[in-house]
Amino acid sequence: MKARVTVSLKRTVLDPQGQTIRSALVSRGYGQIEDVRQDKVFEIRLAEGTDAAAAKKQLEEVARDILANPVIEDYRVELEG
């Protein structure tokens, strides 16, 4: 089973990387791009036969306690097939 954890800076937290990427895109002529936020994505592979509900619960814990810093970041856990 595969899982994906996406960690993104909270909307209220400045994302200077996203802003720099946006201004580079605009200067390349993509003027319609109004905002860019850069996220982190963790692709995680779980052992065969792992219980989906238990895995989801565990990954929520991992995301909250380790992969994200809840002071500045939000996270999203998705299980794939």
Partner: peptide, 17 residues
């Protein structure tokens, strides 16, 4: 110290990168 919760807040990328 901020990561482990002994101090509040966080340190993020410098504004000028």
């Amino acid at each position: 110290l901020t990561e482990c919760g002994l101090l509040p807040g966080a340190l993020i990328r410098n504004r000028g990168l």
